[in-house]
Write a protein that binds this DNA or RNA. Structure first.
Lengths: 147, 147
DNA sequence: CAGTATTCCTACCGTTTTAATAAGTATAGC
DNA sequence: GCTATACTTATTAAAACGGTAGGAATACTG
């Protein structure tokens, strides 16, 4: 599966906001520095997530971003669809293909696949990713204390 | 989901071969005419399916293609992987992303999704598509006889 | 053995998509 | 008013994709 950098960076940004906002906003510059993603690139991605009502922005000095709701209420389906609706959406053919075989294919394969992808992504939340991240980062750094 | 025209046309060609080869080979020109796909384009797709041992070719005059095995033994997984291994394969990030968050994301979402896609496509065969096609084409033309 | 029908190979071109950058505007805190 | 920030739009550069083209190799046919 090919996932665009935009989707990848978008999700990473959200997890970053989730982890580092302690009742406070998180700025593009912060995210950029921590996640090693160009700030200018983020400025293009985050507004899309705001329009999808996943994050809320505060303008001006001391501004930044926060999640609009608890991380466990934000599904990856919401996020992915906001950034690139083709990822989980119905199969689209560039070259028209108005053939019955293509229809059969759609019924037997593509539509079932995409239905599953949607429902699967609906059952994974930002919280799940953040928790998993915490475990991963814990298992990397914690053992150091015991050396 | 975005599926390339190559994958779509490749599968259509195989179903066409499956339907129209009666112990005989099927030529690119035949497929092209029936499925309305440029012959030159097919000449680019079919060799890939031959290399993947899905079809067998006969060169020269009276040449053409046949399936290497019964249609019920050819899974869509084989076909899709032969034509574009990125469709069902592991998620690939264009922009490197060597972050732990990306790892967490991979574990919680991408790898599970792709594993499912692979296993799902493994359980659909060319025969299934051909059968479905026959039903579709039947339900379109058969009722005409009763008018 | 010549002619023809076919697969095969490789290069090429144009369009679209994507990634990333850039520049400048608007807003709000201090 | 200065500064830090989000917002918007345009632009560039690179890659992927769809499709075309020319010609070489191969094998049947008369």
């Amino acid at each position: 599966m090919k996932i665009s950098s935009k989707v990848e960076c978008g999700i990473i940004s959200l997890v970053d906001i989730c982890i580092y906002s302690n009742d406070d906003v998180v700025t593009v510059i912060n995210i950029s520095a921590r996640q090693n993603i160009s700030a200018k690139y983020l400025e293009q991605i985050l507004p899309q997530l705001r329009q999808a009502d996943i994050i809320r922005s505060v303008k001006g000095a001391k501004g930044g971003y926060t999640l609009t709701r608890p991380a466990e209420k934000i599904t990856l389906r919401d996020v992915i669809n906001a950034l690139d609706s083709t990822v989980l959406g119905d199969v689209t053919f560039i070259g028209k293909e108005d053939s019955l075989i293509a229809d059969a294919l759609s019924e037997c394969l593509w539509s079932k696949m995409t239905a599953y992808l949607q429902s699967f992504a609906e059952n994974v939340t930002l919280r799940d990713i953040a928790d998993r991240y915490n475990k991963l980062s814990g298992s990397v750094s914690e053992p150091m204390y015991y050396i």
